[in-house]
């Protein structure tokens, strides 16, 4: 029944999916944190940029962003991100696009976490003489992160599934292999089921583990 799997590197394709997810997750956590810091900063220009970025980027379809990285950045502007072959260029462009998109959601999740930190904590820190970066880095963000593990897990699961969009610019991940198999095998439903199951294998443990972490880490108030 599953003999159509022979001759295809399904595990390799899912490994590319995992790599896309991990690099994009790290990148969007960093850039998303920076955006959240901008959105709560006392500098109006930074607040304005943060708000503008989030509202623009999260409302553009991911497919458009990913295709723009390839057609716009690479083909038209010649940005190859230091790589020489299509395989590496496309992978990096896809990671860049996924980071740009996902960090808007990370930023908003984190900002909701910042709002859970009682104002008294910030006032106490200010009274002790801490500056903005110290208040944010030492007092607010550590508590904020602990309260948004759950929402960030949602973002991570969405990101895992969003990596399939990278097939649009030819990154050889799971969705691209699925299209190849559907083209060759005429087994639409079985092949789709196999790949759906593959994604469940990736996302279910992520959700369960991070759900457990979020219960452990949450700040009890």
């Amino acid at each position: 029944m599953f003999d159509f799997l022979q001759g295809y590197d399904v595990l390799g394709a899912f490994w590319t999916t995992v790599q896309l997810t991990l690099w994009s997750a790290i990148g969007s956590l960093l850039w998303g944190t920076a955006l959240a810091a901008m959105r709560v900063s006392p500098v109006p220009v930074m607040r304005g940029f943060g708000t503008w970025y989030v509202n623009v980027v999260r409302n553009i379809p991911l497919t458009v962003i990913i295709i723009f990285t390839s057609l716009g950045l690479f083909q038209t502007l010649g940005v190859s991100l230091g790589a020489g072959t299509f395989t590496v260029i496309n992978f990096r462009l896809a990671v860049l696009g996924l980071i740009a998109y996902t960090s808007a959601f990370v930023c908003e999740a984190l900002r909701s976490g910042i709002n859970t930190v009682p104002l008294g904590q910030v006032e106490a820190a200010r009274a002790l003489g801490l500056g903005f970066t110290q208040v944010l880095g030492l007092i607010v963000l550590p508590q904020a992160f602990r309260s948004v593990v759950g929402p960030l897990a949602n973002v991570l699961i969405a990101l895992t599934k969003n990596t399939t969009v990278a097939a649009a610019i030819g990154v050889p991940e799971a969705a691209l292999l699925m299209r190849e198999m559907i083209e060759n095998e005429a087994q639409l439903i079985l092949i789709s089921a196999v790949f759906a199951a593959g994604f469940l294998v990736l996302t279910l443990p992520t959700g369960l583990f991070l759900g457990w972490v979020s219960r452990k880490a949450a700040v009890r108030r």
Binding site: I67, T85, F86, A167, A168, I169, G170, R179, E180, E183
Partner: peptide, 27 residues
């Protein structure tokens, strides 16, 4: 992406060629 032609290039015709796969021929 995923078309028979793309797979032919990868597997037989020109394995040393670089292959860009897009969703449509317009790209």
């Amino acid at each position: 992406t995923g078309s028979t032609s793309a797979q032919n290039v990868k597997n037989e015709l020109a394995p040393r060629a670089q292959l860009q796969e897009y969703g449509g021929y317009s790209e």
